Structures are given as C-alpha cells and as structure tokens.
Amino acid sequence: MNRAESFKKIQTEVKEFVTYADSEQLIVNHDCLTVLKKIPSNSISLILTDPPYHATQKKNIYGDTQFKKDDEYINWMEEISIEWRRILKPNGSLYCFCDSSMSARLEVMLSKRFNILNHIVWTKPNQPGFDGWKGKMNKESLRQWYGHSERIIFCEPAKDGNLHRSSFGELLKKKRTESGLSGHKLTELTGAYGKVNHGGAVSNWETGRNIPSREQYQKIKDAILNTKKVNSMPEYEDAIRPFIISKNLEYTDVWNFESVRPYKGKHPAEKPQDMLNHIIMASSYESDIILDCFSGSGSTALSAKRNKRKCISIDIDTHWTDYTERRLNELF
C-alpha cells in the first residue's frame, strides 16, 4: 500500500473525529488515545509530538495538571507509547518533547519498545528583549539550577532478534534465509566485504550495527530476488529509516533553535518552525505520513505542508483544531 492509499485508509478509520481533511492533511478533534487505537498498524513514518509535560503544571496547557503523581503520568504515557509502537512503520522515527525533570523516566519507559537513539537538549535561546521569566526572575532566590532547556527523546521501533534490536536487521536476515543465500554469498554478490569480518557488511547489517546505502540496498534486493525464492522486497524508503543530515546542518544533540516570540493568541507550548523543519527533513522522506497527536496550534502540520509531507494532527481542544485549520488556509 502506497502512502496516498495509507493516508486515505487512516482517514476512513478516524472519520468520525475528523474536522478537516484534504489529500495531505487530517485534523482530528478528540482524545488522542482513542484516535490512535483506530489508526492502522505500520502506517506512520514519523511521530513528532509534544505531550503535556506534567512537571510544569501549567493550567493554560490542556492535560498538564491532569495527574497528581509522576507514576500516573508515566503510566498514561506508556499506554500512548504502546500505540505509537504499533502504528509506526518498522523504519519509522519518534521525536517526543518532554520536560528535563521527566526525561529520564520517560526514556526508561520508552526503551521497552523503542531503541533510544538520542537524548536531545533544546537550549531555547530567546532574542534580546524576549527573555520572559529567565530575564525577570530574582536569581538570588534560586535553590537549584534554573530549568531553561527542554528535552527531545529521539528513537526508533525496537525489534528483538539481533544485537541492536534492529527492524531492518531482522528483515534482511529473514529474506536472506528465505532466499537460501548464506551471509558470505550475499556479501560476495553485493561486494560488501569487510576488512576483518568475513561476513562483511552483511553481518553488520543483520546485527543492526549499521545500514546499507541506497546503492548497497539495491544490490541486496537484486541478489535476493534473483534467487526466485523470495517474491518481494520493500523499496528503500520502506526498509531504511531516514536520517538525512550534513555538515551544513545541526548534527549534534544540543540544539539552539530560537523560541517562538510572544504574539497574540500564541499557544503556550508552540515550537519554532525551523526546528520542526529540521526534524522532518532529517527523519522522513517526501510524501511520508507524519503524526502529531498533541498538535496544539498546528505547527507540525504547517512544517509538513511546507516540506511536502502528509500530516495527521490530533488535539482534544476544539479551539486549537479550529486554529490549525485557519493557519493552514491562511498560509497556503
């Protein structure tokens, strides 16, 4: 099923909650857990979302004061993460924003079903004159370091069966075994010899140590299909998790994208477009389906639209789903 067909199927499954739909955007107004359970398995390429932080206890953010105890919040997030794991494609990615004080516990919980790839620190710099509480507060009254940064947990779906719980490693081993090719023979056919390891790159791919390039994957695909024992192999974009980066882009795990300046009607947790663009361009392919299940003011939807991706925006607050629709119509 191609991405356009997958998007239509998702729309059909959640239609009772949809407030806006076109060929690239779905806006859904309902509780996210209910909606997530209706989304077909293995249909989302990138989950990019900003749940309530709980630790901040802000009354102007829906759900931020919902839980009295940390464990209640973690248990709720685990329910959601179970659905994230189910609906993400095997080569998908998850970026989950969170408060620094909850990040360690969320990371441990997520590691049950995901491989944690990075713990990103967003420093949240402000332009001069827009420092908010950081500029106004009495520093001498502090009794701990001021929590000015936020965290982003970046991970991929985990698949048990190899050293690094790699979904692609499991796929390759399964298809190679079905084809009757040994690791050495596939290495020979692809020319992927290692200097030390006689199994070459094939052994590393199957244990999840690294991934093949697009050219290498095509050789793997041709070699396996040419045995006539395997009927199909997924395309590169459906097999390999995208991570498209260069020396000209931010490539470390400390990010300095400026916070969104205050404006009338701003969502209190709005994220900057340049940061969302960076995530979407690094971790998705063109036409991929992106999900933001705590979509707020629709910033992920706008970024997805600008970068030629499809997007599903879910929010429980009608004010913000209506606002998202207006933003899309005004800007595009």
Rank of each mutant, 00 (worst) to 15 (best):
Pro268Ala: 10
Arg143His: 09
Val230His: 10
Gln127Thr: 12
Asp315Phe: 10
Ser23Pro: 00
Arg165Met: 03
Lys175Leu: 15
Trp320Asp: 06
Leu331Ile: 14
Gly132Thr: 02
Glu78Cys: 08
Asn256Tyr: 12
Asp222Met: 05
Gly265Gln: 08
Ala223Asn: 04
Ser287Arg: 04
Ser283Gly: 02
Ile240Asp: 00
Trp145Gln: 10
Ser232Lys: 15
Gly161Ser: 06
Thr318Trp: 00
Thr177Ser: 12
Met77Asn: 12
Glu258Lys: 14
Lys266His: 05
Ile87Ala: 10
Ala201Pro: 01
Trp76His: 14
Lys8Leu: 13
Gly200Lys: 02
Ile153His: 02
Ser182Asn: 08
Ala282Ser: 13
Met281Val: 06
Pro212Gln: 11
Glu206Thr: 09
Glu250Arg: 06
Ser141His: 09
Asn42Thr: 07
Gly63His: 08
Gly169Ala: 01
Ile279Asp: 12
His54Phe: 15
Val35Asn: 07
Arg86Phe: 08
Arg241Gln: 00
Ser283Met: 13
Thr56Cys: 03
Pro51Ile: 05
Ile80Gly: 00
Ser45Leu: 02
Asp99Val: 08
Pro272His: 05
Arg241Trp: 00
Tyr146Asn: 05
Thr12Ile: 08
Arg86Glu: 12
Ser297Thr: 10
Glu330Leu: 14
Thr49Tyr: 06
Lys139Leu: 05
Pro90Met: 07
Tyr217Pro: 04
Gly183Arg: 14
Ile116Phe: 07
Asp70Gly: 03
Glu13Leu: 09
Ser93Glu: 08
Gln273Met: 09
Lys310Ile: 01
Lys37Leu: 02
Arg85Thr: 01
Cys98Ala: 03
Ile279Arg: 02
Lys68Arg: 15
Tyr193Gly: 11
Phe97Gln: 11
Gln11Tyr: 13
Ser283His: 15
Asn204Ala: 14
Trp122Thr: 08
Leu33Met: 08
Gln57Pro: 01
Trp205Cys: 03
Asp288Met: 05
Asp131Gln: 14
Asn197Gly: 02
His54Thr: 02
Ser287Gly: 10
Tyr323Ile: 07
Ser166Thr: 00
Ser313Phe: 07
Leu172Gln: 06
Leu186Ser: 09
Ser313Pro: 05
Phe114Ile: 13
Asn91Ile: 01
Leu48Asn: 15
